[in-house]
């Protein structure tokens, strides 16, 4: 088996008989004897040079922006988000005040006509995923002020409805009654459930300021309230209301 060795070429002598493992050894010797390392590094060098030139050409095109410019570029075209505070005072409260019903009226309607019919007539329900929200108004005497839990409750009795009405006074206001009770707020207007929920939180936080501004109350005071009552069944033992408007009623 002739194995020639040259300095500028690789001569590989192919051995006959296939590629069984036995022959690999001879194969390799043939390769090595004839191999020229310069050839490899020459290829490597030209390759490297090619990469370097193309890299330099490509890299001449990057952009540097300052952080202010970046913010401007990224947010150009984002619609402004709805402001909870202005929506509450400008739209929701006026609308609610004009669409309220007396709580007694609603409760007796539920008893007589059934929940679903009453909801269709008097309430707002955005879909199967939402409870039915009634905007109610009532006035009564403060029976109890419960601040033991962070879900503060002011219980009104003598409301003329036959039921006790509980005003949710914070600092934690559960539920999404205000958002769900106003027909013009739909989930589709928000980018995701989180944003939708945050909006409800913003509305509820406004309510806390309304309550704070109302001032101190003591049992025995007579007040009137307009608020949202959200219910899945209409059969709740207590009527929990998220207030949007509170007024003191003059004593007898």
């Amino acid at each position: 088996m002739p194995i020639t060795s040259t300095t500028s070429n690789i001569r590989v002598t192919k051995l006959s008989g296939g590629s069984g493992g036995f022959h690999h050894f001879h194969y390799i010797i043939g390769v090595i004897r004839g191999a020229d390392m310069n050839n490899t590094s020459c290829i490597a060098r030209t390759f490297g040079l090619a990469i370097l030139t193309s890299t330099t050409l490509i890299l001449s095109g990057f952009t540097i922006v300052s952080s202010e410019e970046l913010i401007e570029i990224k947010t150009g075209g984002t619609p402004p988000s709805i402001d909870a505070s202005s929506l509450l005072y400008d739209d929701i409260i006026p609308w609610a005040s004009s669409s309220t019903r007396n709580v007694g009226e609603v409760l007796s309607a539920i008893e007589n006509q059934g929940f679903e019919t009453t909801c269709e007539e008097y309430g707002i329900q955005k879909g199967q995923a939402f409870p039915c929200t009634f905007w109610i108004q009532t006035s009564g005497v403060i029976d109890n002020i419960d601040t033991s839990s962070r879900v503060g409750k002011i219980t009104l009795s003598d409301t003329g409805s036959g039921s006790e009405v509980v005003i949710l006074s914070g600092p934690v206001i559960p539920g999404t009654a205000l958002r769900d009770g106003y027909p013009d707020i739909v989930y589709n207007d928000f980018s995701n459930q989180d944003a939708f929920a945050s909006f409800s939180d913003d509305l509820n936080n406004e309510v806390i300021s309304i309550i704070e501004n109302f001032g101190e109350v003591t049992p025995g005071d007579r007040i009137s309230v307009v608020g949202a009552y959200a219910t899945w069944t209409g059969m709740d033992s207590t009527i929990q209301v998220v207030p949007v408007s509170l007024e003191r009623v003059g004593g007898e």
Binding site: F130, Y187, N188
Partner: peptide, 8 residues
């Protein structure tokens, strides 16, 4: 009427 709908 809406594309995104919620289920309870």
């Amino acid at each position: 009427s809406e594309e995104r709908q919620l289920f309870r």
